[in-house]
Design a protein around this nucleic acid. Sequence first.
DNA 1: TATAATTTAAGACTAAGTCTAAAATCAGGC
DNA 2: GCCTGATTTTAGACTTAGTCTTAAATTATA
Lengths: 132, 132
Amino acid sequence: MTDTIDLLRQSGIQPTPQRIAVAEFILGSKTHPSADEVFVMVRQTCPTVSRATVYNTLNLLVEKGLIRQQVLREGTIIFDSHVAAHHHFVDEETGEIHDVPWDAVQVSGAEKLIGFEVHEFQVVMRGRLRAK
Amino acid sequence: MTDTIDLLRQSGIQPTPQRIAVAEFILGSKTHPSADEVFVMVRQTCPTVSRATVYNTLNLLVEKGLIRQQVLREGTIIFDSHVAAHHHFVDEETGEIHDVPWDAVQVSGAEKLIGFEVHEFQVVMRGRLRAK
DNA sequence: TATAATTTAAGACTAAGTCTAAAATCAGGC
DNA sequence: GCCTGATTTTAGACTTAGTCTTAAATTATA
Ligand SMILES: [Mn+2]
Ligand SMILES: [Mn+2]
Ligand SMILES: [Zn+2]
Ligand SMILES: [Zn+2]
């Protein structure tokens, strides 16, 4: 809570109750929620917050580098509190998105493609979550 | 033209003028157009076709395996006439999507991730197209 | 406390996509 | 070549994700 406020201040974001609520939720989230999913959840702790403020705050957090956007789900952008490089696995049945650690997969050749100056890359996997 | 008609028949799709126009366009396309981009282009050869028919036909072609959908651009799905496995490079300035041949990049470890049954994967790269 | 700057909220607006129901087209049997 | 039922197309209504606008509320500062 105070650490969230400090984090926002350090990133040049004026902490308001709404922004703190959004930041607390998304930074603590391990799923990869859409803006509307964040809106629904944040409403539970901050019932008067508007949709516009949630969207604006998420975009602001992306701009300041505290979270990332990912294009992985059809129809909507998702937000990822995990900013370090990693890969993703999409469950084809449920649509759930799971993080795959950077070192769990090895990729070679991406940097030396002719014609392309690659700034970043990730492996996107699709399949089924294995019953454990 | 006759080969497109044959291809549709072989896939169990009744060839109509609208479907032939959509199929000819998307199967010959090397960009990765959205449904609305396909709509605008197909209108030029078939000016009365409706948006619903273009969307329905694209979804039908996906269902029959003649083209693929890709989630690579924010805000919209794109269609890919290249059905064999390959990777993608997204130009961060222009948004253009380029194919990267399967063998240009090597990925290892994806199949033996514990907890995930990977059915398919691709490397998604982002950066700048290099001036040649 | 007064003032100016920032932020929020509600709802209008836009864009991507689906759905509906009536009209048009098509295929097979006579 | 027509009749009939099945398929397809169309226009527009509808839905959902997201942005924009503007007035009101909040916040920072002096
Ligand atoms: Mn955005
Ligand atoms: Mn679809
Ligand atoms: Zn992630
Ligand atoms: Zn492609």
